[in-house]
Simulated scan of single mutants.
Amino acid sequence: MEMQQNKGNRAIVIWLFTGVAMIIVQVLLGGITRLTGSGLSITEWKPILGALPPMNEVAWQAAFEKYQQIGQSKYINSHFTLSDFKWIYFWEWLHRNWARLIGIVFFVPFVWFIIKKKIDRSMINPMIVLFILGGLQGLIGWIMVKSGLNEENLYVSHIRLAIHFIAALGLLWYVLWFALKLSMPSSRIVQAPGLRKLSGWILGLLVVQLVYGAFMAGLHAALAATTWPSINGAFVPSGMFSQGGFLADITHNQITIQFIHRTLAYVLTLLIAVWYLRSARLPQLAAVRALALLVVLLQVFLGVLTVLNSGIKIPLGFALAHQFTGMALLMVMIWGRFVTRP
């Protein structure tokens, strides 16, 4: 994906950064749908007609009756009134429609740029990959929802949720990298192989941490231990190996997942502090290094607040702020790695 940075790319760069912002919003909407239990409220996938919500009370009642056929409604939300259903329906509808809007925002300007000959040959293949990634993300989302539309599964699997989440972050990573290639002059790039290697380790661990963040949200694992700095009075809590196997514990045991999530947060903070100190001699990294340290500390702080304020349910505001800073940290470290690319 090699291409030249020039002033003619300005409109394309704005377009791509708009896409980055919209993907961030979409991921946050996904977090809301999960934490409010809204993801299974729409039981059909209609790519075109589904853009409109039920238009009258008869249509609303029909949609509600379809929802009442699945296990989540029968065993968890059996007390729901039509008004309650409309609330969760709204969040899933907004999540899906925002995805449709992202598709329009990417596709229409793309066609316009081709007509105006603003896109050169070097950009075509990356653009095609971008659309494929976007389409796959939508497909993954529907497969995830469809898996919960039965009487057995009360929620969508947290494993499928993590795949959906990481696929969205992969798309975010790709679009951001593409935008940086078109916007950042070569004079801002520095040769720092050691620092680049360290940022690669940080990004790798951060992806694992984000997977465990999805596990935390999917299993509501914050409710398993609402204390800090200890975990229910211990730094290595009991019950971590009670699921019958190592793999089962690290992927399904709430207390184990929370322990891993916390531990990775401390390790990442330490590694980013080392990266911050080692990058001090490079003026090109002044802004990104300051942001990296600030965001990781804020991320840990918000994680602590989320845990401490989790009682009967996880506080939506703190959880979303924690999720947003996780994405922000990912983008900052992508920026840092981009600046030190060969």
Rank of each mutant, 00 (worst) to 15 (best):
V207P: 10
G170M: 06
F235Q: 01
F178K: 00
P237L: 08
T227E: 13
L161D: 04
A248F: 05
P126H: 11
L210H: 02
N77V: 11
A248K: 14
S199G: 08
L16D: 02
L16K: 01
Y174C: 05
L94H: 03
G204E: 09
P193H: 00
I260T: 02
E2N: 14
V339A: 12
R337V: 04
P315S: 06
F246K: 07
S147T: 02
K118Y: 09
P54E: 05
W45V: 01
L49D: 02
P283G: 11
L133A: 11
T306S: 03
K313T: 15
Q26A: 11
H95Y: 02
K46P: 08
L285T: 10
Q243S: 15
L330T: 09
I189N: 08
G245H: 12
V25D: 08
T226K: 12
F324Q: 00
L176E: 06
G311P: 03
A162C: 05
R341G: 14
W228M: 06
I124N: 12
S279C: 04
T256W: 09
F318V: 06
W228C: 01
G170Y: 01
V295M: 05
W15F: 07
A217K: 00
I166V: 13
R96K: 11
S41L: 02
F107H: 03
T226V: 15
T256H: 12
V175G: 09
L136K: 10
M184C: 04
R188M: 15
A234C: 12
H79M: 13
G326Y: 00
Y174T: 03
G218T: 08
A224R: 10
F241D: 08
W112N: 03
L282C: 09
L330M: 15
S279I: 11
G239E: 03
K313C: 04
A222K: 05
Q284P: 12
L49S: 09
F318G: 02
